[in-house]
Design a protein around this nucleic acid. Structure first.
Lengths: 344, 344
DNA sequence: GTGAAAGCGCTAACAC
DNA sequence: GTGTTAGCGCTTTCAC
């Protein structure tokens, strides 16, 4: 491999000192150098195809221009969009991202955080699903800039970006309610995942607002956000509460499982039962009957988290709000109808 | 931020020279140090929570322990699995990956390659879709280790990993043929994408083997791998060749578009027409009627490319084969049936 | 077996 | 306006 050209090479070539070359090539300090010298240096830099060595820069400046992005699992379809959102603001700023997958494993997460620190990342964007994330809190306390996504951090003063899960649940509940449903069950996500808990809490809040007694509520908690759990919980719901006319699911995959269970057992959606999702994942429109769901802005959430981190890295931590809540919107398709009883 | 402890700190603490500390902490050279000194140093390192500064290491060793991973777009569902495959072999080896999205844009790709070089990556895994990738060839010629995925590189001596697209097309063609289909159209992908071209070439090859005249073939090229193009091309195929009983599509999204077009126009799949896909993307099983397709091993492709790159980085480029072809398999669902004419 | 010194490529404080 | 010097944290050659 042919050695890359360094400042030293340009200095030798132009007959000036390395530091002069460094200054001439730095837009900030170019002013303090004679114009003709600058030109000479720039010409030589161009000719020798000079590219600054960012590793040397990093060592000297104690700034790697790299951030760490921690996600549970990139194959989970919501994260690629988040990653692109982050990239869309960080890349133009000159930052690269090291993306690591925690697999929701706390030990692994801890190791990965250390790896990121060893590599001198300037900050971390942590998109949690697990509710507890003690590791990242510790590192934030050490002074490393951290922004979390999808997760409120109560323990520490870490800025976080979340979707308005509460509003989403509320809106979709009201959609069902206004369609005439009164027996609305909740197919909840795992309560140890932040979205599972938040959405269940929102369900409790909105039902309370509508005067439903907590004891009358039908809530079934899935162990994982997967179709199989959606099927299992739907069966549980319908055998426990056959009067159920609508199932408000904590995410799309659970809802798809719910629909699948109903279809298999001869219960038609939406004719016999209304089912709703959350997230609005890709290809949902192609899956019958067309799931009515809540759309969340993944790309924008990533971009927003990145903007906050960038502000902190820029020394303006004071301008960064502790909480940022992103709006959600309803995506109405065909899985909600007037309940059977009301129809006749 | 509390400064991290360095070798110097440990040296001061233990009363030995930094170089001794460096040696004591290096498993390779530990042998040349008195055992008790090693213990003393290790104890101090532990106590002060020493973590080596990888940036300093990189500058000194001219080795960043970082690789670049270039993909067209992480939101394209096949890439997350590839990325995890790469990670699964590189992470245990101590390498981190910087993942960049080229968006199939050559200028952008060029810039990103420079960024990666500036950051001193030790190698690049390039998962192309575009057939032409002159930029990466140039960089490989400069001596940077490169492995490509999904793309044969004819021009240079770059090792590549590809799926056995030819076998996939052949198998699915034979499935259709043996079901009785003789009027099999090909809904091709864009020929400027490697998969589009390879699959079309495979289609030409297998039809030739089955004695079909090239002039009789019905091939429609999509501009993009998207549902809308699938719809458009299907319409074109059916109006041009109404006798078509099967459409062999270059990927799943085109096939979904094809099915959608047929459904809308009252042509039932598989009763009236058989349709096949390629890739076996997620959630395909939930979309009616269940697309029969070719399954390719994305995770393993990533892992394999990473293994090759690791071998090169380890100085064993000679052990790396130029070509690696990964097997594919049929995934049979419900979108293929005996053609109408044969049924009666 | 350990210390001293040099240097990876860069920036920055200080001279003049 | 430019050169000198020092140093970021580490590894490595060369002494002894």
């Amino acid at each position: 491999m042919t050695r890359r050209t360094t400042l030293k090479d340009i200095a030798r070539e132009t007959g000036v000192h390395v530091s002069t070359v460094s200054r001439a090539l730095d837009p900030q300090k170019r002013g303090s150098i004679t114009e003709e010298v600058v030109d000479k240096i720039r010409e030589a830099a161009e000719r020798l195809d000079y590219r600054p060595n960012r590793i040397a820069f990093s060592l000297r400046k104690q700034k790697s221009m790299t951030i760490g992005v921690m996600i549970p699992d990139i194959t989970n379809m919501i994260f690629p969009a988040i990653v692109r959102g982050i990239e869309s603001v960080m890349e133009p700023l000159g930052y690269a991202a090291i993306i690591v997958n925690t697999d929701g494993n706390s030990d692994r997460e801890k190791r990965l955080i250390e790896t990121l620190q060893d590599r001198g990342v300037d900050g971390i964007i942590h998109t949690a699903v697990l509710r507890s994330a003690p590791n990242i809190v510790e590192v934030a306390h050490q002074g490393l800039p951290v922004v979390t996504l999808n997760r409120k951090v109560e323990e520490a003063d870490i800025p976080y970006v979340i979707n308005d899960e509460e509003a989403g649940i509320r809106q979709i509940f009201e959609l069902l309610y206004q369609a005439g449903h009164r027996n609305i069950a909740h197919l909840s996500g795992p309560p140890d995942l932040s979205t599972g808990l938040l959405r269940q809490q929102a369900f409790l809040a909105v039902t309370a607002d509508y005067g439903m007694a907590r004891d009358d509520l039908v809530i079934e908690e899935a162990d994982r956000f997967e179709e199989a759990e959606g099927r299992r919980c739907t069966q549980a719901i319908l055998s426990r509460a056959p009067e159920t006319t609508a199932v408000l699911c904590a995410n799309d995959r659970l809802a798809l499982g719910a629909i699948d269970h109903c279809t298999r057992t001869g219960v038609k959606c939406p004719a016999d039962i209304s089912i709703t999702g959350f997230n609005d994942m890709a290809f949902l429109d192609l899956i019958p009957p067309g799931l009515t769901t809540v759309r969340i802005e993944q790309f924008e959430a990533g971009a927003q988290a990145a903007r906050l981190l960038a502000k902190i890295l820029d020394g303006h931590a004071d301008q960064v709000p502790r909480e940022t809540v992103l709006p959600v919107s309803l995506k109405i398709r065909n899985s909600v109808a007037v309940p059977r009883a009301s129809k006749s």
